[in-house]
Nucleic acid binder design. Sequence first.
DNA 1: AAAGTATTCAACATAATTATTGAATTGTAT
DNA 2: ATACAATTCAATAATTATGTTGAATACTTT
Lengths: 218, 218
Amino acid sequence: MSSPSPKFELFARFAEVAKALGNAHRLVILELLAQRERSVDDLASAARLSVANASQHLRLMRKVGFLVSRRNGTQILYRVSDPAVLDLVKALHRVGERNVAEVREIVGGYFRERDALEPVSREQLSRRMRDGLVTVLDVRPEDEFDAGHLPQAINAPLRELEKQLRDLPKDRDVVAYCRGPYCVFAFEAVALLRQHGFSARRLEDGFPEWKAADLPVA
Amino acid sequence: MSSPSPKFELFARFAEVAKALGNAHRLVILELLAQRERSVDDLASAARLSVANASQHLRLMRKVGFLVSRRNGTQILYRVSDPAVLDLVKALHRVGERNVAEVREIVGGYFRERDALEPVSREQLSRRMRDGLVTVLDVRPEDEFDAGHLPQAINAPLRELEKQLRDLPKDRDVVAYCRGPYCVFAFEAVALLRQHGFSARRLEDGFPEWKAADLPVA
DNA sequence: AAAGTATTCAACATAATTATTGAATTGTAT
DNA sequence: ATACAATTCAATAATTATGTTGAATACTTT
């Protein structure tokens, strides 16, 4: 029973951090928190978890340093502690997408016309916004839009997009974005827009990545 | 019993990938494989695991795409499939080191004089090597050195370093490196060298990071 | 100070992970 | 072909993670 070496001890800590990423519900919560600060029961209902269960997941992620919390009035608000956490999630996505055959199937199936939809890169969008050539559509729920969005973006939550279509200029390209690379809202928005004769594309990923790249935010 | 959404399915896959990182032994194996290709029982003994157990860990990491294997004669050799995997591990280290209080304690305790030892960055070392001002010491085991090392580096495994000391020029700075940022060999080598009057520092991380940065390798 | 609410805790049942043993494969080499 | 070695598989036991339920806490607000 030799005591484990300090280095093994260190790696055991890193393993604990990785374990905190190793649950789909927690990844969902992290994506939600990447948009904005949220309360426990807000998260619980958004992620379809019991409050107690959500609380447990949050506690665990706070323990490994992913999240910090503060009290505001009667509720406790959680947020992501550090952009490095989002970088870690992004690195996970990259490896997952690259290496796991099943992920390629899911991505290629449900997010089927991924390439056909020709995502616009942040740099491209940024340039075209400067030139005023493009309508930018934020298709996330209103609360997430309010917490921060791209400059000039119009909030059009998917359910209300159809109503708002008549207000959009038909002669300009539309770029839609939502929570991140695996958020389906933008895909569906682009499909709907194209059905109605718009020239529409989606941003390659979402608001958190835009913000993380230090691009301007409103 | 609504079936889980495709997006949740996708996140469940990512969670599986993260779980594969969530075990200290697997992180040790990954660090070993970052140095060079190795056989199962080679890894088992290096990581102090039973062969069957090591085989299980390897199988799991191959399943999530971290590793690939090939047969060579009688044994099966594993290696890391993609540099993105090492990026993921690095992102994990960064978050772990940044956010987990206990990690800071371990790092600050065992790797205590971390800052006092003033690590040299890859860029600094690269420059000083070009100017020929520095002796570069690879303190990893010989087999790892043979599989790839920094140009001009001298292999001096820690156990033999003391014997080799007399052959080192005393008027030049020495920079030692080993497997990565948490590998203790370089720390101990620097300590030993300083005891013997050398001006010694360690490289900020190790060989895999050097190689990943596309710097020249021998 | 009391009442009310959001959150956390504790205890449990179920499920998943880990390490061990020994047997079964799968290839190489004689 | 047969023997051999390296690796993988299968079955087990022990540990750890997950999600419920209902009760306890810790605040705010009145």
